[in-house]
Design a protein around this nucleic acid. Sequence first.
RNA 1: UCCUCGAUAGCUCAACGGUAGAGCACCCGGCUGUUAACCGGGUGGUUGUUGGUUCGAAUCCAACUCGGGGAGCCA
Length: 463
Amino acid sequence: MDEVLVKEIFRNPDAYLHRRLEVSGWVRTIRVSKTFGFIELNDGSFFRNLQVVFDDSLPNFEQIAKLPIATALRIEGEVVESPGAKQPWELKAARIEVEGLSQPDYPLQKKKHSLEFLRTIAHLRPRSNTFSAVFRLRSVAAYAIHRFFQERDFVYVHTPIITGSDCEGAGAMFRVTTLDPAALPRDDRGEVDFTQDFFGKETNLTVSGQLEAEAFCLAFRKVYTFGPTFRAENSNTPRHAAEFWMVEPEIAFADLNDDMALAEEMLKYVLSYCLEHAPAEMEFFSRFIDPGLLPRLENVINSDFGVITYTEAIDLLKKAKQNFAYPVEWGADLQTEHERYLTEQIFRKPVFVINYPKEIKAFYMRLNDDQRTVAAMDLLVPGVGEIIGGSQREERLPVLEARMKECGLDFNDYWWYLDLRKYGGTKHAGFGLGFERAIMYMTGMANIRDVLPFPRTVNNAEF
RNA sequence: UCCUCGAUAGCUCAACGGUAGAGCACCCGGCUGUUAACCGGGUGGUUGUUGGUUCGAAUCCAACUCGGGGAGCCA
């Protein structure tokens, strides 16, 4: 007996109609009358369920009729046309075998659950419609990102998860150590003696692969990283997680305009790819999660992203009729309310804000000719906010060293990074895309905890 | 970390100082084409934790824990 995936039946029904075959999967719901019933079977291969019809000609009809949700079944039967309105065909069961019984107290009911409740059963929620769609889309989007870069001859770099420098400047880090916290070795001055630690120095989980990606960029010309990233910030928002995935391309012989063009092309490519390769999931998000989703994504694909300088943005915000809680002043960082106003009210589409004051940006960003701003860019999107942060990197060694001095950084900690400028440095640029934020944008899901399979946030590492 | 709202049955919620309730789930029964099936009956509670006010607290007060929204940090 041929075992067939539900996905194959839906994709190519003519090949299976009136054929006898076997399927296996989990019960989503059972509806029974006295002598017959229906099983909605999900086999994990496809977003939609296969409707199975069974009747009391089966020897185990009584048992099947009372099976609890989530029971695993193997079913042999014939694919036939369905008189029902909601599905063109169904499986007429000739044999139903219980592979793994479930229990009546199965927490996932056949009703709408709150996302908050589903978070408490993260091990079961991928079986729900919403999370089935979210995590299948996440997989498709990840593949789209690899395809985009591989098709353009980018080299995929696995930058280290454990980093030896605690000076990457992107906030609090998680310490990696094998020292016993109850018996820390001390040096002469009473400080913790990290020379006795595993690596002989302080180490942490990475907050960004950028510095290492730059090294590979100046060897391979076009590279990208795509991996987990860790921030120990005590953030408690729908947009932050302690462990998340970041995509960081880095391109040589390129400036900020090339960087923005790459970001825009990549985002449009991934959107298009997902719409084409996960249409059932995208349709689901549009119907049940975010009604305006599909038109909005189509609009993004078909329009040019906005570009505005930081200075122009400040002028626009000062002219805005809207009252802001935080004052708008050149030199101050844009607040979330300002970013939302720009992308949601003025542009109503993704917009790059570029050329920020150097004081509010990282040391490695290239100083502009005005000596006041750096070649940085943030991409803001409606509903999510900052989704990409990037810059052209400072390739001029004396300028970079001057900036590092201003920022109080120790050259010894960056000796290899400075070497990159010393030996054939070129202009280059790159950016970081928050993968989860991109997924949020594509699905309409409003909380980052609901696009991560097992989210790690402050006070939460269950599962 | 700050501001704010919340926590009552497995889930979603009501009861607003005076006997804890509904829908769904679950259990039992009915139903020959269902679509979150439908119809009838039933089980189900230390009202987040600790303390306080009161004759009496789910209800008022305090602290703590957890969750939502907003802010900061950022992706």
